[in-house]
Simulated scan of single mutants.
Amino acid sequence: MGRDSPPPKAEAEADAHEGARRASWMRSVVIMVGVGAAVVLAAVYATALIAPVPRPDATLHQTGADADDRLLLRMESEGQESGAPPRPGYGGGEQEIDLSTLSAYGTFRGFEIWSAMNAFEAPCLIAFHRATDDIVARSCVPAGTDLFVDAGWPGLAPGEQLRFLLRNDTVEAFLLRPVGPD
Rank of each mutant, 00 (worst) to 15 (best):
D146N: 13
S24Y: 07
A173P: 14
T107K: 01
A157Y: 12
I126Q: 02
S5T: 06
A104G: 15
A127C: 06
G83A: 06
A48E: 04
A173Q: 13
V30F: 12
L73N: 15
A12K: 15
R3N: 09
G34R: 06
L72D: 07
L49W: 15
A16D: 12
L156A: 11
R138C: 03
A65F: 01
L165I: 00
Q62H: 11
A37N: 09
R21W: 10
L73A: 14
M32H: 08
G83Q: 04
P52M: 08
A104V: 09
G152Y: 14
V39T: 03
I135M: 01
E11F: 07
V136G: 10
V30S: 12
F111Y: 14
S24F: 08
F174G: 02
P56N: 09
G106H: 14
G110F: 05
I31M: 08
D182P: 15
S115W: 00
P154Y: 03
G110M: 04
D133R: 10
P56V: 05
V149N: 00
R167F: 02
A10W: 15
G152M: 13
V136W: 15
G83Y: 06
A38I: 11
P6L: 12
A119Y: 02
G159R: 15
A119V: 03
L102Q: 08
D68N: 15
S100N: 14
P178V: 09
A20L: 12
K9H: 06
C140R: 02
L60Y: 06
Y105E: 02
I97H: 02
R21P: 07
T59A: 06
R138I: 13
R27T: 14
L147C: 02
M75Y: 05
P6G: 10
Y45R: 06
E78P: 04
F120V: 03
R21E: 13
P8S: 10
A46S: 11
D57E: 05
V171N: 00
H129I: 08
R109N: 01
G180R: 13
C140E: 01
G93Y: 11
A119C: 03
P178W: 09
D57A: 07
E11I: 06
C140S: 08
E172L: 09
L73F: 14
L99N: 02
A38D: 08
A137Y: 08
A20F: 11
E81V: 07
L147Y: 00
G180S: 13
R3Y: 10
M26V: 10
Y90I: 03
D146I: 08
R55C: 10
H61R: 14
P158D: 07
P181H: 10
G89H: 04
F148W: 03
T47M: 11
H17Q: 13
L60E: 04
P154N: 04
E160A: 05
A116M: 03
S82A: 09
F108C: 00
L125G: 03
D69G: 00
V29Q: 15
D4L: 12
V171S: 01
G110T: 09
V53A: 04
D182A: 14
A173R: 11
H129P: 04
P181Q: 09
L125S: 05
A48I: 01
R109I: 00
A51V: 07
E172T: 05
R70W: 10
G83F: 07
E94I: 05
V40E: 11
L175T: 12
S82Y: 10
M75S: 08
L165K: 00
V40K: 10
P142M: 09
M1F: 12
G79P: 04
F148C: 01
L60S: 06
Q80Y: 07
A131W: 07
P8E: 13
A173W: 12
P8L: 13
V136E: 14
